[in-house]
Write a protein that binds this DNA or RNA. Sequence first.
DNA 1: TAAGTAATGCAACCGGGTTGCAAACCTGTT
DNA 2: AACAGGTTTGCAACCCGGTTGCATTACTTA
Lengths: 136, 136
Amino acid sequence: MNDKFDKQLQTKHIKPTAMRQLVLQVLTKQKTALSLPELEEIFVRADKATLYRTLKTFEKNKLIHSIDDGSGAVRYALCSEECDCSIEDLHVHFLCSKCNKTYCLNEIPVPTIKLPVGFSLENVSMVVEGICANCR
Amino acid sequence: MNDKFDKQLQTKHIKPTAMRQLVLQVLTKQKTALSLPELEEIFVRADKATLYRTLKTFEKNKLIHSIDDGSGAVRYALCSEECDCSIEDLHVHFLCSKCNKTYCLNEIPVPTIKLPVGFSLENVSMVVEGICANCR
DNA sequence: TAAGTAATGCAACCGGGTTGCAAACCTGTT
DNA sequence: AACAGGTTTGCAACCCGGTTGCATTACTTA
Ligand SMILES: [Mn+2]
Ligand SMILES: [Mn+2]
Ligand SMILES: [Zn+2]
Ligand SMILES: [Zn+2]
């Protein structure tokens, strides 16, 4: 059980500390992305900086990806199995204006667009805002 | 000359004060979007709150639109002539990772995407990050 | 001119994010 | 078991963009 998260962390070359296992566990069971402040609410006894660095470590090692949806706090979600955080792994995110939750729309890739001449692309972010299926 | 901005403000039902004329003038000559902190650097003697409220007023009255490009500060750019800030006026924005400037790609509308069932759309934001034409 | 309304200036505050530093912890070695 | 090195954690402080309350000033109109 913990072994599962343990392996997962080691696969991404992250030393599996207790805190990291717990954070990974929480992130795993979420259907929507979590921000640092939200994580703080879940781990009331944990230190903000530790949670912050945990997320940063996870992100650096591509266990999670970050989503800046304009909701005020950057949110994080588990990367999917095949994800290596390259351009072709980018997908659309959805922010519900009612429940303020952020969904990964993993099945919807970010559409390709043709940039003006001279502009080169390194990254794309597409955030759709609206009402989610749970709120309607 | 000032008359031009004057009319423009009145068209959008904004009382044309001196500060507002100046801010509009600055926004007009910009080729890239401006954030509140950047505006503060330009108007060193002006008060932050005044500039803040000026931007908010402009935005509410659809003289400018805001762009949250993930650069840390929300940026603002003049709306184009025909813009009434509805869905079909949405366009892609470009953030240069070198000069950190944000461009309105007015000629590139945000692509339509098909959301999962139950999800409804109210707004979309698409930000491309890369190297701009000036920086390459 | 006087009253009423809107804009401005100043100060303080909030919240998310980030960092320096010391203590605790882990791991491998003597 | 004691030690040494490197890593993680906890605590505190800080930064910065954004926002608000409130008193003052400016504008409008009766
Ligand atoms: Mn995602
Ligand atoms: Mn724009
Ligand atoms: Zn919802
Ligand atoms: Zn550039």
